[in-house]
């Protein structure tokens, strides 16, 4: 019943402290290495934010969004287009707002309908935005490519992402204990019931999708300085959408922190594969999708929970046999 308490429980406080310590530890990484490991950590941090933001929406609603690349690209472009004239924080805000608005529009068009429509719509969304941006640039501006020159180093981007991760986690926690979070749990259980107890289900889903999309836009904005040279195909890379889905599902979507368990191993694996066997990346993603569906339908977290439950069951049987004892888990 923790999500509904007005105050913070001890358990939550404990998690917050552990999280803060881990975050602080992660933030010291650039002091030790600014090459390969920082680069890898930056990728991990990026996907942690992306996947957590994705899970914020797709976890409770079970809608599979493939729109991440579109939001990401919009964030990147917001920065790339304005870096010469406007301050960076303002551009990040614009990226957030623009992505959230796009998410809102997509949501209004599709979230009233079944999940299949939503998947199909988001599947081509990044490609659509890319086409429109390319068209607009070739017709109304001088060239397609944009340079993003800033003073940001990889370490700066990494720290910004860590900070954003903290913001996303806190937001997720706040949403979970709000009426919106409660409404979404009901929707995830039974949408008909949700409507009949007075929940505007479409609005609730759209609102959450906007929050999620906005955060993904911010990630794109933060990453723009790393690209240095921004072109539509690199900013709107559809692989981002698929990788986000696969990593989040690999970790599990039932808990806010679950995607972490998918992101860290998969980013490391994928980094190795693309460095050593660049032609095999599609195969790896394909196999990862397959294993999620057939072997880990609830992700790594689901596996851990199953193992725990099994262990407890054994223990109960054992104590029952021994002395008709009470459930040791109580």
């Amino acid at each position: 019943m923790t999500p509904l308490l007005a105050t913070i429980t001890r358990r939550e406080a404990g998690i917050a402290v552990i999280g803060a310590v881990m975050l602080a530890a992660a933030a010291t990484l650039p002091l030790f290495d600014t090459g390969f490991y920082l680069s890898l950590a930056l990728n991990i941090a990026m996907y942690v934010v992306l996947c957590t933001a994705w899970t914020l929406f797709s976890g409770p609603t079970h809608y599979i969004s493939l729109a991440s690349a579109a939001f990401f690209g919009i964030g990147t472009y917001s920065v790339a287009l304005g870096i010469e004239t406007l301050p960076f924080p303002l551009l990040v805000t614009i990226g957030f707002v623009a992505s959230a608005v796009l998410a809102g529009l997509v949501g209004i068009a599709t979230l009233r309908l079944s999940g299949v429509y939503f998947v199909i719509f988001t599947l081509g969304l990044a490609e659509l935005v890319r086409q429109v941006v390319t068209w607009a640039q070739t017709n109304f501006t001088r060239g397609v490519g944009l340079y993003v020159f800033t003073d940001f180093t990889e370490a700066h981007i990494y720290w910004m992402l860590l900070g954003l991760a903290a913001v996303v986690y806190v937001t997720g926690w706040l949403v979970n204990r709000s009426r919106l979070g409660f409404a979404l749990r009901i929707i995830g259980n039974d949408e008909t019931v949700a409507r009949h107890v007075g929940i505007n289900t479409a609005m609730a889903k759209v609102a959450l999708f906007m929050i999620s999309g906005g955060f993904i836009g911010i990630v794109g904005a933060f990453l723009a300085p790393r690209f240095a040279y921004v072109e539509p195909p690199s900013a709107f890379n559809p692989m981002i959408s698929f990788q986000v889905v696969i990593m989040a599902l690999l970790g599990g979507t039932g808990r806010l922190w679950a995607p972490l368990l998918g992101v860290i191993p998969f980013t490391i694996l994928f980094d190795q594969i693309s460095a050593n066997f660049p032609n095999h990346t599609s195969l790896v993603i394909g196999i990862a999708f397959m294993s999620v569906v057939y072997l880990l339908p609830r992700g790594v977290v689901g596996l851990i929970e199953d193992m725990r439950r099994m262990k407890r069951k054994f223990r109960i049987v054992w104590t029952d046999d021994a002395a008709l004892g009470k459930d040791p888990a109580e």
Partner: peptide, 11 residues
């Protein structure tokens, strides 16, 4: 959807 995504990437 997820399984056929896997199939898609493998193919």
């Amino acid at each position: 959807i997820l399984a056929t995504f896997g199939l898609m990437f493998i193919a």
